[in-house]
Every structure is written in structure tokens, then in C-alpha cells.
């Protein structure tokens, strides 16, 4: 009985892992399989599908579009939201309540509803729908950028640093650029990477608002699902690898936590991390 109760958590944990990883492993194997129809494991391995994928200019273009759209939206979000968060948390803390409400709103509106609303509001009125998607992306990143930046500002005690810099003769602008930005950089970077990885995988808005006119990687993947399972798997694996690299980067930035004297940069980056939970709840919804 005791042995059973002791091993039960391990069994449950293993079951969850298997449940989560079987599709991933199967996708990976399928992307490398020559053919896989009647056997338990693939009949042979090949890089043919990846070769085909990377020779396909349509894929390269779609990948480039995704990269361009996600990074441009992320950069715009950083440029707009970081200074705004700084100004609000230091000089207008009363407004924080309203920002919190805005943050909640971005969670409350499901993607489909937002897409329909945006079509109703802007479609056929002379606006390029890509610009509308871009704007929605920038605003959609508010929760991650805002929370990450605010936590980083708190972790470095931005208020005292600003006061010290000002008394040493720096203007607020100069103090912000010379003192605050370098110190919260790890936090900004983590928030930006999270934002980027969310935007890179975004499908609902771009599909409904723009569709095939601006084919991103997700749209290309969707199209390929109906033609070639192998190619679709290769796309998915490519996407996974990209996300793994980004995640490793985030882990590296927030890591070094086991050291007794934690590097302040790691503390700042870690302060930005609660956004991961937010991201998960957003993806789940």
C-alpha cells in the first residue's frame, strides 16, 4: 500500500509526460519518415521533407512574413509600452488601476470576437487590414510588456535610481536612457521574446482579417495540412526548434537563480517572468 502511494505521483507524472510528448515525438518522426503506414515506427528516415520545405520559396516567404510582422509588432510594443509603463508607475501611479483594467480586457476578448469586431470597424474603409492586425498585435502585447516592465522597474528600485540620477544633474529623459533602460534591459528582453513567440504563432486574427493575401507561416502550415502530412510535420518541427531557441534564451536570461548572490540582471529578468503564467492562461483560453 505504502509503495503504491509512494509511486503513484511518479506514475501520474510519467503519464502526463507521455500524453504531452507522444504527439511531439510522432510529429518529429513523421517529418523524418520515408513512409509510415502499417508499422509502429517509420519504415525509414529521410531529410527529404525538410529539403523540399526549405527549397519552397512560398515557405521561405511565409516564414519571412511571420518574422517581419512579429518582430515589427514586438519592437513597436517595446517602444510604446516600456516608456509608458515607466511614466505611469513612477509619476502617475493612480493611472495603474486603468492600465490593469486594459490588461484584463485584452484577456477578456476572445480572438474570434476581436477579429469580427475589427472587420466590422475597419474593413472596406480604406485601411490595409495588415496594419489593423499589426495594431491589434501591439495592443495584444500590452499585458506581457506592461507586467514585465513594471516588475523589472520594481526589482531595480527605479524610483531611487531616477532621483539619484536627477540630483547628479541628469534630465529625466537622460536618466531614463542612461540608468533605467540598461538596468531593466534583461526584463524588457524577456518580455519581448515572450511577445515575439506568441505573435509568431498567432493564427486566428491573421487568418480571418487578412488570410491568403499575406501568407504567414501559420497560414502556410494550415494550407499544407491538407496536402502533405510530412511537410506539415516538418513545418511544425521547424517552428518548435525556433521556439526552443527562444525559450533557451529566456531561460538563460532568467537563470543563474541557484547562485547565492543573484546577478541583478537575472533578478530583473526573473521579475519579468510572471508573464509566462499570463501567456499560458491566454493560450489556454
Amino acid at each position: 500500500m505504502t509503495r503504491l502511494t509512494r509511486s503513484l505521483p511518479m506514475v501520474a507524472f510519467a503519464a502526463v509526460l507521455i500524453y504531452l510528448f507522444i504527439p511531439v515525438i510522432a510529429t518529429l518522426l513523421y517529418s523524418l519518415a520515408t513512409s509510415w503506414n502499417k508499422t509502429i515506427l517509420p519504415e525509414g528516415l529521410t531529410l527529404q521533407w525538410f529539403g523540399e520545405l526549405f527549397r519552397d520559396t512560398r515557405f521561405i516567404q511565409a516564414f519571412g512574413r511571420s518574422l517581419l510582422l512579429s518582430s515589427a509588432a514586438t519592437i513597436a510594443a517595446v517602444v510604446v509600452i516600456v516608456p509608458a509603463t515607466f511614466a505611469i508607475s513612477l509619476y502617475a501611479p493612480k493611472l495603474e488601476r486603468w492600465v490593469q483594467t486594459l490588461v484584463m480586457l485584452t484577456y477578456a476578448v476572445p480572438g474570434v470576437i476581436m477579429a469580427v469586431g475589427l472587420i466590422r470597424a475597419y474593413s472596406g474603409k480604406g485601411f490595409s487590414m495588415i496594419i489593423i492586425v499589426f495594431g491589434a498585435y501591439v495592443i495584444g502585447m500590452l499585458p506581457f510588456m506592461y507586467q514585465g516592465t513594471r516588475n523589472s522597474l520594481r526589482a531595480v528600485q527605479a524610483g531611487s535610481l531616477m532621483e539619484a540620477a536627477e540630483l547628479l544633474g541628469a534630465s529625466r529623459m537622460k536618466a531614463f536612457i542612461r540608468v533605467i533602460v540598461p538596468n531593466i534591459m534583461p526584463g524588457i528582453l524577456v518580455s519581448a521574446l515572450l511577445s515575439f513567440s506568441i505573435l509568431f504563432g498567432e493564427f486566428v486574427l491573421i487568418n480571418i482579417l487578412v488570410g491568403g493575401r499575406f501568407e504567414t507561416m501559420q497560414l502556410y502550415l494550415y494550407a499544407k495540412l491538407n496536402t502533405s502530412g510530412h511537410i506539415a510535420s516538418a513545418i511544425t518541427v521547424t517552428y518548435f526548434i525556433l521556439m526552443a531557441i527562444l525559450s533557451a534564451w529566456i531561460v538563460k536570461l532568467t537563470g543563474r537563480t541557484s547562485k547565492p548572490n543573484k546577478e541583478p540582471s537575472a533578478a530583473v529578468a526573473e521579475a519579468a517572468i510572471p508573464t509566462t503564467k499570463a501567456m499560458m492562461s491566454k493560450e489556454a483560453s
Binding site: 531595480v156 528600485q157 531611487s160 535610481l161 532621483e163 539619484a164 540620477a165 540630483l167 540608468v179 540598461p182 538596468n183 541583478p264
Partner: peptide
Amino acid sequence: MVFQSYALFPN
């Protein structure tokens, strides 16, 4: 001014 927390620039 010397602050109680020193407020040195960590970077």
C-alpha cells in the same frame, strides 16, 4: 545626496 539605500547604478 546619499540615499539610505545608496541607489548606486547597478549597471
